[in-house]
């Protein structure tokens, strides 16, 4: 993941539900209470980069608990995972998160949840096969496939483009051959 990768930056700015375990003075602006104290037990949606930093830092005294605990973000909660297990093709991933898989991979670094990870992998595979079919089908992008294609996340959009460009280049070469004879 590159420092200048816009997709990585956008992934890191997605919101993550955090619960504060300690009172933190001066952080009140996060919940619109400038200069105030964030009480222990407050639930806040923080950007991922901030949430992760707070989650790995502890209080001043040794042995004190972590500052915040993280939770699964909405796009990865059980409801969505169940829907993906049932039928990956009908879920609108873009509505969940524009960088769904990148978010998933990032969250999997924090939580070791094998079941969710396996679901993500099989989802990606099944949807990739569908994407290839749609990319090769000239009517797909306009007709019955439009709904599915609107729901692709960024990674899948790039995949669609790659799957579309290959056959297009071969077709262009074949046409060129005919023209030059």
């Amino acid at each position: 993941m590159s420092y200048y990768d816009v997709d990585a930056i956008l992934t890191d700015s997605q919101k993550l539900p955090c619960t504060f375990e300690l009172d933190v003075p001066g952080l009140g602006f996060l919940e619109g209470n400038v200069g105030g104290t964030v009480k222990a037990g407050t639930k806040l949606d923080l950007p991922m980069w901030l949430g992760i930093m707070l989650a790995v830092s502890t209080g001043n005294t040794p042995g004190s608990s972590q500052l915040v605990t993280l939770d699964f973000p909405t796009p990865l909660q059980q409801r969505v995972i169940n829907a993906l297990k049932a039928d990956p093709r009908t879920v609108d991933l873009r509505a969940q998160a524009p960088h769904f898989y990148a978010l998933g991979a990032r969250i999997m670094e924090l939580f070791d949840d094998r079941a969710v990870l396996d679901t993500l992998l099989s989802t990606f595979k099944l949807r990739a096969a569908e994407i290839a079919d749609q990319a090769l089908n000239p009517r797909g992008a306009l007709g019955e496939g439009a709904e599915f294609l609107r729901g692709l996340d960024e990674t899948e959009r790039q995949l669609f483009k790659a799957a579309h460009e290959g056959p297009k280049a071969v077709r262009a070469w074949t046409l060129d051959l005919k023209k030059n004879t």
Binding site: F124, K125, A162, E165, G166, V170
Partner: peptide, 20 residues
């Protein structure tokens, strides 16, 4: 040559998800 973009895209995507 035709399928390289797609196949490598899938492998790359899977690897990114499985990075952890």
């Amino acid at each position: 040559s035709e399928s390289r973009g797609f196949l490598t895209g899938v492998i790359g995507g899977l690897r990114k998800i499985d990075a952890s």
